[in-house]
């Protein structure tokens, strides 16, 4: 992430200098910073709604029930999550919401899942193997019904706006499978703790200190 972030910014500056787009790039930087805060604030309401509901579901034993029912299938994908851990339930809730295309609600449930996974994480400032697999599934999009895309196609006068559902499902299945496999293959090459890491104090304390 450090390299990618730096690369995006450096490339932007070099290209902007070459193409004379420096003013636009400046505006974009300021504007994006504003958008970021608006997005985060906009998420708070939905976040509160789902965190509240998930807490009820947890107290009622619903999440644990869901986790127990689907445990066999998920043992293969998330081998490091112990049976009956609430993370299984919240990850499933997120994936289900994503499949239905529920946008911000899916994000809220996903963040709840990340909190549950963080409990299991030994190195709090590094992503765990399970987090990597979970995020690979998430970013490969598990949407069954791309509602926005269908709507745009319909308004553009398509004869069959929903004809792309089949191809979307196939492409999604491919990317999700590749994401799971890639995260598993790569995890050994990226150990949680950097050997001779650059910060002397414990990562857990630091994460709490400056976040």
């Amino acid at each position: 992430m450090n390299i990618v972030w730096l690369a995006l910014i450096l490339v932007a500056i070099v290209i902007a200098a070459a193409t004379g787009q420096m003013q636009e790039t400046t505006n974009a930087a300021i504007e994006s910073a504003k958008t970021a805060v608006e997005l985060a604030i906009g998420l708070i309401g939905v976040m509160a709604l789902w965190l509240g509901l998930m807490r009820i579901a947890e107290k009622a034993g619903l999440i644990q029930l869901l986790a127990r029912l689907l445990r066999p299938a998920l043992r293969i994908v998330f081998p490091e999550v112990p049976a009956r851990h609430p993370a299984i339930g919240s990850m499933l809730a997120n994936i289900a919401a994503n499949m239905l295309g529920l946008g911000n609600s899916a994000t809220a449930l996903g963040l709840r899942a990340m909190q549950d996974l963080q409990q299991l994480n030994k190195e709090k400032s590094s992503a765990s193997n399970t987090m990597a697999t979970f995020l690979a599934i998430n970013t490969s999009s598990v949407t069954i019904i791309p509602a926005t895309v269908i709507a745009i196609r319909a308004s553009a006068g398509s004869n069959n706006p929903a004809e792309i559902i089949g191809p979307v499902i196939v492409a999604t299945a491919v990317s999700t499978t590749v994401g799971i496999v890639a995260s598993r293959l790569l995890q050994k090459k990226a150990p949680p703790q950097r050997p001779g890491g650059d910060d002397p104090d414990s990562p857990g304390d630091r994460a709490r200190g400056d976040s």
């Binding site: 990340m114 963080q118 992503a127 690979a136 995260s183 994460a207």
Partner: peptide, 17 residues
Amino acid sequence: YLGSIGVRRSRHTLAAC
């Protein structure tokens, strides 16, 4: 997702995604 729990080292996550 990673920011919400204060994870700064994404390890192989970005590559896999």
